[in-house]
Design a protein around this nucleic acid. Structure first.
Length: 418
RNA sequence: GGAGAGGUGGCCGAGCUGGUUUAAGGCGUACGCCUGCUAAGCGUAUGUAGGGGAAACUCUACCGAGGGUUCGAAUCCCUCCUUCUCCGCCA
């Protein structure tokens, strides 16, 4: 959600932001409704004032034992008028709210305008492995432990099932990443894997992503598409003290995505699935420090890839690739040796005060003063399936065995998976 | 799932036989006074949002949410949400 004062003062900025993000918005309709609302409110407040005065007069007269019929009649008339005006305001309010929900966040000035082709590769690190044999894709290397047919029998296509070492590897990675974040000053959170519509609206999955989420209609709940939802909503409707900022959180959750309309070539194996596991980093930050915090989250994510020895590159997303709520976003892509392509394994976003407005998340400045909206940020740290793809494919050896990086070998109890 | 009791400003908490409560009081916070320092004490200020005004200031709304009754609702009625206690069920 954007600041109404900004909408009134600089509607053009919002129109341009929406165009850069390929979102259709109707600013004219909003401006007209807002002007109507304000005119109505002026009238309503004047009438209320009169009614309050009459009520007071009635009270005083009654106390004195005098007749107050005249005041009461006048007040009744005003009440009728007010009722009509108020119901019009209610209508306009819901119109305004629904229009505002369709306004995307404004990209930062340093975000390139354009589509996917305009994403900027900020850096590429690590050595892409070379083989003296034809490297295999992960679904061949993991035939015994990754069983999509079984998952399909249980839950439908594009769900996954791990057994044996793959299940253990995933669990080990989750635990290792959480420990890493805790060492870096984050607090681990275990949150619900379902969320109410209000929560989805606060972090801005709703209204736009409704079709991409699993919905439990009977209980009016959604399965979370990312840990961002429950972890950020931990602070919905909360007023923090400035001294408690920043809030650094991390947590493991599964992520459920319908991926409607995305069936096709890129969803073989673990590349794109309906349920995947993820460790998420969430940060609540002072508005003046969110820029630095954003870079810090990026550092945390890539540091893990360095420890795992996985080649990666960092992209600054162009406006058209930014999510609805983001002002700026870095994507981290890792190398898949068996498929010979880069895979997105983390998205690290700064939402500035966009989610905080929707979710009413504020802090009281030290030394008093009016509460201000916090800035929210989050980033994957990291998503499991593609991490596993990269570890398996990049670590493969001629005999089909897989060499593990040292940090995992210690925890898995073996250096090579056979 | 059943029964009962609650949801009031950053927090706690009165008000709830409808009208000087445009929400008492306390805690916390800010500023000042006092004081070797600190603590305590004293004084003043301090909810959120929107409108008007150069400003002092002023108007309006908000007591979980939404409806209703009434000239007038934190206060009465209805629906829903939610928290707690007890019972039931269950890993």
């Amino acid at each position: 959600m954007l600041d109404r004062k900004l909408l009134r003062k600089d509607p053009q900025i919002v129109v341009e932001a929406a165009r850069a993000k390929n979102e259709k918005i109707d600013m004219e309709q909003w401006l007209e409704a807002d002007a109507n609302r304000r005119a109505l409110m002026l009238e309503i407040e004047e009438l209320r004032k009169q009614r309050n005065q009459l009520s007071k007069a009635v009270s005083i007269k009654r106390r004195a034992g005098e007749n107050a019929d005249e005041e009461m009649n006048k007040s009744r008339e005003i009440g009728t008028k007010l009722g009509a005006l108020e119901s019009r305001v209610t209508e306009i309010d819901s119109l305004l709210a629904s229009i505002e929900m369709s306004f995307p966040n404004i990209p930062d000035p340093d975000v390139p305008v354009g589509g996917e082709k305009d994403n900027v590769i900020l850096k590429t690190r690590g050595k892409v492995p070379e083989f003296n044999f034809q490297p295999k894709p992960h679904w061949e290397l993991m035939e015994d432990v990754f069983q999509p047919e079984a998952a399909s029998r249980i839950a439908g296509s594009n769900f996954i099932l791990f057994r044996g070492w793959a299940a253990k590897l995933q669990r080990t990675l989750i635990s290792w990443m959480l420990d890493y974040h805790i060492e870096n000053g984050m607090e681990e959170v275990w949150a619900p894997f379902v969320a109410k519509p209000e929560s989805m609206t606060a972090t801005a999955q709703l209204p736009k992503m409704d079709d991409d989420m699993y919905k439990i209609g009977r209980d009016d709940l959604y399965l979370i598409p990312t840990g961002e939802v429950p972890i950020t909503n931990l602070y919905r409707d909360q007023l923090l003290e400035e001294t408690s900022l920043p809030v650094r959180l991390c947590g493991y959750t599964p992520c459920f995505r319908r991926e409607a309309g995305s069936y096709g070539k890129d969803n073989r194996g673990l590349n794109r699935v309906h349920q995947f596991e993820k460790v998420e980093m969430v940060r609540l930050e002072h508005p003046e420090r969110s820029e630095d915090a954003h870079l810090e989250l990026l550092d945390h994510a890539v540091a893990m890839l360095e420890l795992l020895g996985i080649p990666y590159r960092v992209l600054l997303l162009a406006s058209g690739d930014l999510s609805f709520a983001a002002a700026k976003c870095f994507d981290i892509e890792i190398w898949s040796a068996g498929q010979e392509k880069w895979l997105e394994v983390s998205s690290i976003s700064n939402f500035r005060d966009f989610q905080a407005r929707r979710g009413n998340m504020r802090f009281r400045p030290a030394g008093g003063g009016k509460p201000r909206y916090i800035h929210t940020l989050n980033g994957s740290g990291l998503a499991l399936p593609r991490l596993i793809i990269s570890l398996v494919e990049n670590g493969q050896q001629a005999d089909g065995s897989i060499k593990l990086p040292q940090v995992l070998a210690e925890r898995m109890g073996t250096e090579v998976i056979r």
